[in-house]
Structure formats: C-alpha cells, structure tokens
C-alpha cells in the first residue's frame, strides 16, 4: 500500500516537473522477485537517483564529456557510455537525448540488498548532430533494463540496456 502511495507521489512530483521541460514519470508498484522487502525510502532513492542519472547521461552524450557520468554510472554502464562518448568525439558528432516519459517498475531486489533491477519503458527523442548540423532525429520508444547498485551515498546505474519489449 505504501509503495502505491509512493508511486502516486512520484507521478505527481514528476508530472509537475513536466511543466519545466522535465520528462513525465510514472512509477508502478514493484513486481518483486527476491526475498528482501523493499522499503519505501529505498525505492524512492533508487527512482530519484535513476532519473538524475538520465540528466547526466543526456549532458555527457551531448557534450561528449565522460566525466559527467562519474557521479551516477559505474561498472559496465559507465564503461560503455564512456566508450561511446569517446567514439562520438572521434567522429566529430554528438547526440542529444531528450527523454519525454518514463514508466518505471522495480522488478528485483537482491537478497543481499546490493542490487536493484528496474524496468523503464521510456520514450525519448534522439538527435545526432555533426557539430551544429542535425544529421537525424528519431523518436524512440523502448524498454530499458537497469541494474543499480549502492555506492557510498547514492545508487548508481551499473547496467543500462535497451531491450526488445
């Protein structure tokens, strides 16, 4: 019940954010695997940190600055994104991502408490630019599987992968 309230709260919170060029966010009640109960503070922190990671992801891919990823991404996710940024920079292109909506659901909380898996049905616009020249724009609707692991003061994205719906 409390998670439903949390979900509703998140929707409200982020729906108001949409007015300020923020994506709309809908958090669905968890459909959990795993024996560990998920506290509402943990769920809220994971959602908050994930949405913040999108902002850093957008900025890093747009500005080709891998260092911007550091506070929010770790492990495979950080390595792959940083590698893509390096390739973009080498090709002289950059990518502007604008996420429009997220539908989030937590699906796994590992019994040791050291990983949380989330599904994000996301819609975003992807615009590839060669310096200031727009090469292409695409509206993308896909599903991300996200694995987050705790760092010292926040959850960081460790797996960030678009998968077939």
């Amino acid at each position: 019940m409390s998670l439903r309230i949390l979900a509703a709260g998140c929707v409200l919170l982020f729906a108001t954010g949409a007015l300020a060029d923020q994506p709309s966010v809908q958090v669905q009640p968890p459909d959990l695997q795993g024996s560990r109960p998920l506290e509402k503070q943990t769920a809220a922190a994971v959602v908050r940190d994930y949405l913040e990671s999108w902002q850093k992801f957008r900025a890093a891919l747009d500005q080709n600055q891998a260092a911007l990823l550091d506070p929010d991404f770790v492990g495979t996710a950080r390595t792959k994104l940083a590698s893509a940024i390096g390739e973009q920079a080498k090709l002289g292109i950059h990518t502007h991502y604008q996420d429009e909506s997220h539908k989030l659901q937590i699906v796994f909380y590992s019994p040791d408490g050291l990983s949380i898996q989330m599904i994000d049905n996301v819609e975003y616009d992807q615009q590839v630019l060669d310096r200031d020249r727009v090469l292409a724009t695409q509206h993308v609707k896909t599903r991300y599987v996200v694995v987050m692991t705790p760092a010292e003061v926040r959850w960081k994205v460790r797996v960030f992968e678009a998968t077939p719906e």
């Binding site: 792959k80 893509a84 973009q88 090709l91 990518t95 590839v128 960030f160 678009a162």
Partner: peptide
Amino acid sequence: YIVGPDQA
C-alpha cells in the same frame, strides 16, 4: 553512422 548510447 550507427549511433546509440553505447556505441557510435
């Protein structure tokens, strides 16, 4: 160009 978040 083939461009995604993880590769270009």
